[in-house]
Design a protein around this nucleic acid. Sequence first.
RNA 1: GGUUACAUAGCUCAGUUGGUUAGAGCACCUGACUCAUAAUCAGGGGGUCAUAGGUUCGAGUCCUUUUGUAGCCA
Length: 698
Amino acid sequence: MSQTTTPSRYTITSALPYTNGPIHIGHLAGVYVPADIYVRYLRLKGHDVAFVCGSDEHGVAISMKAKKEGVTPKEIIDKYHNIIKKSFADFGISFDNYSRTSAEVHHETASDFFKKLYEKGDFIEEETEQLYDEEAQQFLADRFVVGTCPKCGHEEAYGDQCENCGSSLNATDLINPKSTITGGVPILKKTKHWFLPLDRYEDFLRKWILEGHKADWKPNVYGQCKSWIDEGLKPRAVTRDLDWGIPVPVEGGEGKVLYVWFDAPIGYISSTKEWAEREGKDWKPYWMNQDTKLVHFIGKDNIVFHCIIFPSMLKAHGDFILPENVPANEFLNLEGNKLSTSKNWAVWLHEYLEEFPDMQDVLRYALTANAPETKDNDFTWKDFQARNNNELVAIFGNFVNRVAVLTHKYYDGIVPSPYTFEAVDKETLEALKGYPEILSNSLDRYRFREGSQELMNLARLGNKYLADAEPWKLIKTDEERVKTIMYVALQIATGLAVLSEPFLPFTSEKLKGILNVKSSGVETDWNNLGAQETLLPAGHQINPSELLFRKIEDAEIQQQLDKLEATKKTNASATNSTDSMEKEVTPQKDTITFDDFSKLDMRVGTIIEAEKMPKADKLLVLKVDTGLDTRTIVSGIAESFNPEDIVGKKVTVLVNLAPRKLRGVESEGMILMTENKDGKIVFLNPDEDGVGNGEVIS
RNA sequence: GGUUACAUAGCUCAGUUGGUUAGAGCACCUGACUCAUAAUCAGGGGGUCAUAGGUUCGAGUCCUUUUGUAGCCA
């Protein structure tokens, strides 16, 4: 079913980022950069495009993270939605609309979608028994249950998987299951759910994918679909017992929400609606007209949802078109290890943007030139540096600079009139004309890595032309010839300015500024570039040269490597100290100023007396010599220390804390404590010899 | 465990339907040049195409084995 005619419009989606963390280079290389290149290319060719995305804000993981951190899901999604949205915008991902699944338009769209399928009888209803936490009054998603693994005996296995032996489990299989919310023992309780019977769509999928897209879908995508279909598709639950998400909008759906994978892809549609509303357009053609080409950019972990489940949903609904292609990318690693949000093993986009200001295109280029299109790839900072210094600076930037500098040197920045074109000039101009098609060839087949290299080849063509023609020598003997040479070189530079736009949008803009193309009077777009004789006319004034790229020094790379090394160390010590018990690192608090800090008066003190507070399990009444005075401090450490053991101990005391009465005893300060790996409270003690009472801590 | 994909020079990758001495960029070595961000241009060395077998006149390309990596499923 590959389309042979040119589509009237394009709907391009890129995977909705999950709002449990910021965007990192893996997301960029796999999804957003290729999607953005494709979209910019389509726009340059004058196509009607809707490029939509948004934050995916539902699901168990966010609900769980919220409970763990003691905040509401909304606080989490707002935080990450804002970070993500801003970093995309700053990075130049040119979404027509970036929405979020908590938006009203999405709730409505997803609800309606569900209702329509419900009314058509496209769901199966089934009652199953699930674990239920009576105290919290809610059903427990697999991740909310821990217990002993029935296979290996590991005591901290999750309801869906044992991280010790790696086997997947059902929550009901766990021995001694416990709710992670209350710690209580869950009971089995009946619950009703709605299932999408994928088996009904088997014939359709077989025909559509296995016959229709055998040739044009990537091997991995096609192969995975084939294995799913061949194994026999089963009904899949599209609702969950959860309090975070889109409420099931039909009778009996109280306390239940749509499965996040049911609502998320509908987010593409909602986002399109939001965009159309704002732009005063009709969203429907973008999703319902057969002459629209729909393409989903995703990572390989999402293949089944975008190729099997979502298309089945769309088919069931009946009004929608299906994706023409799903160019799923493989994964990117970082310095030899898997990227991990929870382990902080990543190059975070929002941090990159701060650490390498105005260098968006460098990261775009490095990620494109080394994109994980056919297999997992490794991002290394050394490669990043090499791509920048050897290619962007040395080949692309340098060519442009030498052309601009020579033009100013010889002609005060005015494009010279060519004299007679020799064979080499004609060949070079002819080669230049061929580039739009060369690049189209790559981009139409989603080969962005190849495309980026072809673009670089155009700059190479320019460098070679100059090296062969040697205008700097001829200027002394043959001025007419030099005019022709510089004219040709300027045409190539202009070609680069136009053709680099999808790959290097910021650079393209800058280069167009140098060449002053907007006032040249020549229409230079992708389509007529190949047909046009002149891209930058003789007599046209260009602006002074500006460097397009700067070199990246070894020290900058080392800094990034050190940062990763520090992460490794943090992770290693975290694993050691939490060997058996999962211990969450408390998130960093809001920043304070130095003035805030200096308000704290902390001193070295010595405990001179200690006794238990009557009728209190946790409290000790201490007399502490602070160097200033001897004062009474009540401390909640009785469970960890015997009073007699701590007399004479040197401790850190916050002395200017407002006094407070605890159990009738006034406490005049606070002793600083921390916790060791076993959860035991320990003193933060100034144990260096010769440190006396009353010394200020700063 | 099942399944899908991947495995080609030191590194990153091309290699369409099997067809002459396996290609490119980077790195390395040599030479040329100086307009240019010590950039550029030319030339060179370097691979028994993961492994073992098979089909074929002929296989990096098709089939099977083993190993490794990754995704998905159980």
